[in-house]
């Protein structure tokens, strides 16, 4: 009974385990470019340009040392982390009550509002880059972390509402009603009873907000110059200024992968459901 799903494949296809072959090939395809980046980050520039080798002959950690000791480099990571965390907190806070409203009530214009929210997820950042720049400059928020965090709300809030609504739909209404009969006020019910029930949904939504804010560059680069410059933008600048320092560039790239990898590890069991936006 336990291995029932595996059976059809093994019966029709020959002895070779096709599934394993596909999987291994796909993972190799995914990991090879990343391996190459790590490989380069551990070489000296002389070795990168002078010879071609599949692994570092002359192992060096100097590239990493450069980044971790130079404030203009590592502050990039700090800036990115600050606005990503701010954005995640804001998005989840405003999205929770809204998602509850969408999942529990019908109200005037709810369907239109929901679609309108989604359209913001579809808005090309390139369209908004210049207006954002002017808007945040005029209110004096240019080059602050909060400006980037707010700008990223454009696509993260709709997404968070969408995901959370999917999860909340799965919670039976009877729970709400029982709580009201027991004399809970709405805020207390929401925080004490409801939020623990959709904890995994909140986790997934937070993960997605983190992810899309972390990987976005166009807006965060347009809205910052020095004080809140994200690491990804630091990379582009240094490449053009110091005449391609491949080793440091690769090391910086590897370091941008690390936070994402850690986050994935913690939410691995919810990822699949989260990608389905709570709809499975």
């Amino acid at each position: 009974m336990a291995d029932a799903p595996a059976l059809p494949a093994s019966r029709v296809l020959p002895r070779v385990n096709v599934r394993a072959v596909v999987m291994v090939a796909y993972l190799l395809f995914l990991l090879l470019p990343i391996y190459w980046l790590v490989n380069m980050s551990l070489k000296t520039n002389a070795e990168i340009l002078g010879s071609f080798s599949l692994w570092p002959r002359d192992l060096t950690f100097r590239n990493y040392a450069t980044i971790l000791t130079d404030p203009s480099w590592y502050m990039g990571y700090v800036n990115s982390m600050i606005y990503v965390v701010m954005n995640t907190a804001i998005s989840i806070t405003v999205a929770l009550p809204a998602a509850y409203a969408f999942s529990r009530y019908t109200f005037l214009g709810d369907k239109h509002l929901f679609f309108w929210l989604l359209t913001n997820r579809m808005a090309p950042p390139a369209v908004f880059a210049l207006p954002f720049f002017q808007l945040y400059s005029s209110v004096g928020l240019f080059d602050t972390h909060i400006a980037v965090a707010l700008a990223h709300c454009l696509f993260n809030v709709p997404l968070a509402v969408w995901i959370l609504e999917g999860f909340m739909r799965g919670v039976p209404r009877e729970i709400d009603e029982t709580a009201y009969i027991d004399g809970y006020s709405f805020p207390r019910f929401f925080v004490k009873i409801f939020m623990p029930l959709i904890a995994s949904g909140i986790g997934v939504a937070a993960f997605f907000c983190f992810m899309f804010s972390w990987v976005e560059l166009l807006l965060s680069r347009t809205l910052t110059s020095v004080d809140a410059k994200p690491i990804a933008a630091t990379m582009t600048r240094t490449v053009s200024a110091s005449g391609l320092d491949w080793g440091v560039l690769a090391a910086a790239g590897v370091l941008t992968i690390v936070p994402g990898a850690l986050v994935i590890y913690f939410v691995r069991n919810y990822i699949a459901k989260g990608f389905a936006l709570g709809r499975v």
Binding site: Y26, L27, L30, L31, I34, M211, W214, V215, E216, L217, I231, A232, M235, T236, G253, T256, I257, P259, G260, A261, V263, I264, Y265, R268, I271
Partner: peptide
């Protein structure tokens, strides 16, 4: 975890 890795790499990286 391995499959989700590319999704979390900043786009310019």
């Amino acid at each position: 975890v391995l499959m989700a890795l590319p999704l979390l790499i900043p786009w310019n990286v």
